[in-house]
């Protein structure tokens, strides 16, 4: 795929990105464009480089070659327009903070250096918690939340950032049905407001129901595009190299 054209109308574009951990290539020559106002599922087997893709785009991992563009610009130039929801297991849930404190973290850049969190910031954070049905758990220490509730707190933290692009690493892993519904309806609402999300997703059965587009990965791009064009037995077999047994 040639990708020298301008990516001004896409929320996130990758240009010939190659990433390696030590001597092992994780992603090879990856190029794609995610149009603004769409929901994209990032799908592929374990170790396909899904998380690596998100982390590299955000500058948490350095690529060997290639680069990413956000709304046609470098990541540094789009300060505040991109929000990141890491894997739930990536943080220490025994940390001495409440749900409300965690959501307020999404506002730290707006609050600014050295300044304390004020009542109006807490109010904004409470609104975001209410949007994901977590207002009653605002004062709970985060270890007392279930996995699904923790994930919703993370989603609320992303919401207060008021970003235009959301990069989410497995927000639906190990969550309850109610949380899954809340997260998906929130994503759909964001998309209807013209925002973009790219979500690492594991459950092939729900891809077509939840998402508009799919990025199918296995250490390189297998296919990219509308759900019905990508989720074909051919492509899936390529991505999962025959390991996929059940496909309804």
């Amino acid at each position: 795929m040639k990708s020298n054209r301008s990516a001004g109308d896409s929320a996130l574009a990758a240009f010939e990105v190659t990433v390696a951990y030590r001597n092992t290539p994780v992603l090879t020559d990856l190029s794609f464009q995610a149009p603004a106002g769409t929901l994209t599922a990032i799908v592929g087997p374990n170790g396909a480089g899904k998380s690596t893709l998100i982390k590299t785009a955000l500058g948490l991992v350095q690529p060997l070659t290639g680069h990413f563009e956000f709304f046609g610009k470098e990541f540094r130039e789009v300060d505040g327009r991109v929000s990141y929801v890491p894997q739930r297991t990536s943080v220490d849930w025994d940390f001495p903070v409440t749900s409300l404190d965690v959501v307020c973290m999404g506002l730290y850049r707006k609050i600014g250096w050295f300044r304390p969190v004020r009542a109006r910031h807490r109010k904004r954070a409470m609104e975001a918690l209410a949007e994901v049905g977590m207002q009653d758990f605002a004062k709970r220490q985060i270890s007392q939340l279930s996995g699904g509730q923790q994930q919703r707190v993370f989603l609320a933290r992303a919401l207060v950032q008021d970003a235009e692009l959301f990069l989410m690493d497995e927000p639906l892993a190990g969550v309850d049905v109610a949380t899954e519904k809340t997260i998906i309806s929130t994503l759909h609402r964001l998309r209807d407001q013209g925002r973009t999300a790219m979500v690492v997703h594991h459950d092939l059965d729900t891809v077509s129901e939840y998402f508009d587009r799919v990025l199918l990965l296995n250490r390189k791009l297998i296919a990219e595009g509308a759900v019905e064009d990508v989720m074909t037995p051919d492509y899936l077999k390529q991505a999962y190299s025959g390991k996929l047994l059940i496909l309804s």
Partner: peptide, 21 residues
């Protein structure tokens, strides 16, 4: 006192802190 929120964020979620710049 000055850095309590920046240090707390770094300790809790370094990834987000880096993404926030």
């Amino acid at each position: 006192n000055l850095l309590i929120k920046e240090w707390a964020l770094m300790c809790f979620d370094e990834g987000l802190a880096r993404v926030l710049g």
